[in-house]
Design a protein around this nucleic acid. Structure first.
Lengths: 229, 229
DNA sequence: TACTCACTTTTTGTATACAATATTTTTTAT
DNA sequence: ATAAAAAATATTGTATACAAAAAGTGAGTA
């Protein structure tokens, strides 16, 4: 008897999140083109759905859709890169403060798991995955702060940060920021809003200071490979 | 010889901005349903385009699309209302400061025109239009500050503010805030960043303090009337 | 070789047909 | 007359067909 493993009902959201993950992990590089038919074949849906997914990713800033030319992974300019971190600097410190006031034991545990996963990913040379997890850590703090509106903006900003890092990150090896994350968790655990706010501010400045000013050449990746389908 | 008055090429963007304006001016109230066919007839395009427009308005927070049920003008909850103004309080004061550093004579002139238009609208009992212009004033400041990322977020926040005001505004008569706008323009003209930041902070608090906690009953409007088509 | 023009192929944009779901109306039974 | 069930209608969701635009190809010319 054949197994009923029909997953079925692939939604635009699922496609978008699959593609987004690939962008976040730098398996899809800025500038890469996402042809509609190719995505259709990969996920087995019609162009209607794929176009919905691409459109939503455009709204999030991950893709840039050029009329009659197609959807490309966005290549933030230097000015946009600066703006992204300026905006984060305005939103995240006070969010960290609010999170410190609300975090419970379960929240702390989840954050620590995030950090652990990051380490594992780094140990396995999965820098892309580690970067994705690092972004999720920041989002998780907004969730703990119970600020959905800000969380939504932060999601976009972190997505764009991932593109910025793909283009402007100085060294290719490690993200030495897990210490900062640890310190943040400590502040949250102690309900120390002042520290949380300051640590977050410093952490963002630290990341920003590690960006390089020069532009980088884009690499082209096979869509199929990038998605691991 | 017949006049070549073919406007032609009605894009999803045009439809979205037309509909958005109607929401901003409270001609379309929170809870109102936007049927696809109706919008199609009004603008003379296929559902494909209309659906694009509605989807983009959903991303901006103006509409809520319920699966298999349709698109409705969003009805922000009280918590969402608070979040919107919390987010604005984080973003706008520092944006006003930046604008004070960059505003030139043309910028000031444009802001003053905005204020004048607001007054005219109020004198003609076009409270909806005045509200729209008031929102544009805030957006204009972000534009002067040359912060596109923040401007984009602010656009969404101001859209949602309009819904919040439709639902939770205390008195129906006047928006007595034009003084605040005047003071802001003065600060910008003088390049006084400190004042601009403080004034904006106070202005937002002032608006927020005038919101009522109770929920309101929704009114239903004919889509055709609301759009004046 | 380098260039351009025409032609072919590929890819995206829009409208429409059909399917699935929700809503309204009618029928039927108590 | 009321309520439940069933049918009819209206509305949204998805796939597909066709149109329009862009990208690619190759012959011909200087």
């Amino acid at each position: 008897m054949p197994a009923m493993t029909e997953t079925k009902s692939i939604t635009a959201d699922k496609i978008a999140s699959h593609l987004s993950q690939a962008v976040h992990e730098h398996r899809l590089q800025p500038g890469a083109k996402l042809r509609e038919d190719e995505v259709c074949d990969l996920f087995g849906v019609s162009r209607t759905i794929v176009r919905q997914a691409l459109r939503s990713m455009e709204f999030e800033g991950l893709l840039t859709i050029e009329k009659n030319r197609g959807a490309f992974v966005s290549k933030p300019t230097l000015k946009e890169a600066q703006e992204v971190f300026q905006a984060r600097a305005l939103l995240e410190p006070s969010t960290a403060r609010a999170a410190a006031m609300r975090a419970n034991a379960g929240d702390i545990e989840m954050l620590e798991r995030h950090i652990k996963d990051e380490h594992v990913a780094l140990d396995q040379d999965e820098a892309g995955l580690a970067l994705k997890l690092s972004g999720d850590f920041h989002l998780e703090i907004a969730r703990i702060a119970d600020q959905q509106t800000i969380e939504q903006f932060l999601r976009q900003l972190i997505s764009r940060s991932s593109l910025v890092i793909a283009l402007y990150w100085r060294r290719r090896n490690a993200l030495c920021e897990s210490n900062a994350h640890h310190a943040l968790v400590d502040a949250l655990r102690n309900g120390d809003g002042d520290s949380a706010e300051e640590l977050m501010k410093g952490h963002l400045l630290d990341i920003f200071s590690q960006l390089d000013l020069r532009e980088r050449a884009e690499g082209s990746t096979s869509l199929r490979d990038a998605l691991r389908l």
